[in-house]
């Protein structure tokens, strides 16, 4: 695990998809942060891991969804995505199920990430 890296900004996702604009606003910020050449990492906690669920159909609800933005993260050099190991278990998911490559982290690893990042914003 690359958690020894310290980030300029960690963006933490805590809400499931198809709720409010929170995740979109968190992703907007992540992309802008990266264009300013700031080291950006993403953490998906609790129900936030569902943001990375591969089979979402937001169009059924006339919602836009964030899949396109998530797919674009790599183009913005945002490649470090961390997921809450316990949340994956809770939702019967593994990292292989998710939309993007991620690292599964235990509470200590998550704590270290949060403690070493210059800024943390939670969505």
């Amino acid at each position: 695990m690359k958690a020894s890296n310290s980030f300029d900004l960690l963006v933490v996702f805590t809400q499931p998809p198809l709720t409010a604009s929170l995740a979109k606003e968190g992703l907007d910020l992540s992309l802008v942060n990266s264009t300013f050449e700031q080291q950006t990492g993403l953490i998906f906690l609790g129900a936030g891991v569902l943001q990375l669920h591969p089979n979402q159909q937001p169009d059924i609800l006339a919602l836009k969804g964030t899949q396109a933005m998530l797919q674009a993260l790599g183009l913005y050099d945002i490649n470090q995505l961390f997921v809450d190991e316990q949340a994956l278990l809770d939702y019967s998911l593994t990292t292989a199920d998710l939309l993007l490559p991620t690292e599964s982290c235990n509470p200590l690893q998550l704590q270290k990430l949060l403690a070493t990042s210059r800024n943390v914003l939670t969505f």
Binding site: L9, V32, N33, F36, Q38, T122
Partner: peptide, 20 residues
Amino acid sequence: TGLGQLVDGMANADRTVTFN
């Protein structure tokens, strides 16, 4: 203004404090 102003602020300030 754009989100860049928040990013610029976070990069240059000693502390950024969020009120959720």
